[in-house]
């Protein structure tokens, strides 16, 4: 997969949000890229770190507040436990669709050859260490490293 050598297509996906609905687009895009023979790597930063944090990735929530597509009025969306409820409901529906869970997805991406990176600054901010992350995460890198890696790649920000 020496993409830069054989001039293959590459994508760099930046995942900066930790909601369940915000994690999936990044994961699906990365996976679809690999399936299409496109080299992919994902850079998890800020809240996106939750998607690869071992203790959080199994119960990501869905934020309903300020979301005009939410099935409940914003007035109610802010009630305690609502995002947790929405998250579990969405997970249930995804299960019905046989969609992989976030954990499975990380494993699939890893096996498919997509590379996952965590943002160093965000790690410091959230006081997380490499050992707190899922084992599929390849490295903790800086924004500068990201640009080095993303050379010649299309960058997708989610």
């Amino acid at each position: 997969m020496n993409a830069s050598q054989n001039n293959a297509r590459r994508v760099a996906i930046i995942c900066s949000h930790g909601g369940l609905d915000e994690a999936y687009p990044s994961l699906i895009l990365a996976n679809a890229a690999r399936q299409s023979g496109i080299d992919a790597f994902v850079f998890f930063t800020f809240w996106g770190l939750d998607v690869i944090t071992e203790s959080k990735l199994d119960h990501l929530h869905v934020n309903m507040v300020g979301n005009p597509s939410a099935p409940v009025p914003t007035m109610l969306a802010g009630l305690p436990g609502m995002e947790s409820l929405a998250g579990s409901m969405m997970m249930k529906q995804m299960k019905e669709l046989e969609l992989p869970t976030v954990r499975e997805f990380l494993q699939i991406l890893d096996e498919a050859g997509a590379e996952l990176y965590a943002c160093e600054l965000a790690m410091k901010m959230f006081k997380r260490e490499k050992k707190d992350l899922a084992k599929e995460v390849k490295d903790v890198i800086t924004a500068g490293d990201f640009y080095d890696l993303a050379e010649g790649a299309q960058i997708i920000f989610t």
Binding site: M1, R34, Q35, S36, G37, E98, Q107, I108, E111, A112, G113
Partner: peptide, 20 residues
């Protein structure tokens, strides 16, 4: 899902766009 091959195996057998 329907066989016991892993994602990794599939990519190893057909490195570029395996399913296609």
């Amino acid at each position: 899902q329907i066989t016991d091959v892993t994602t990794k195996d599939v990519y190893a057998l057909f490195p570029k766009a395996p399913a296609r």
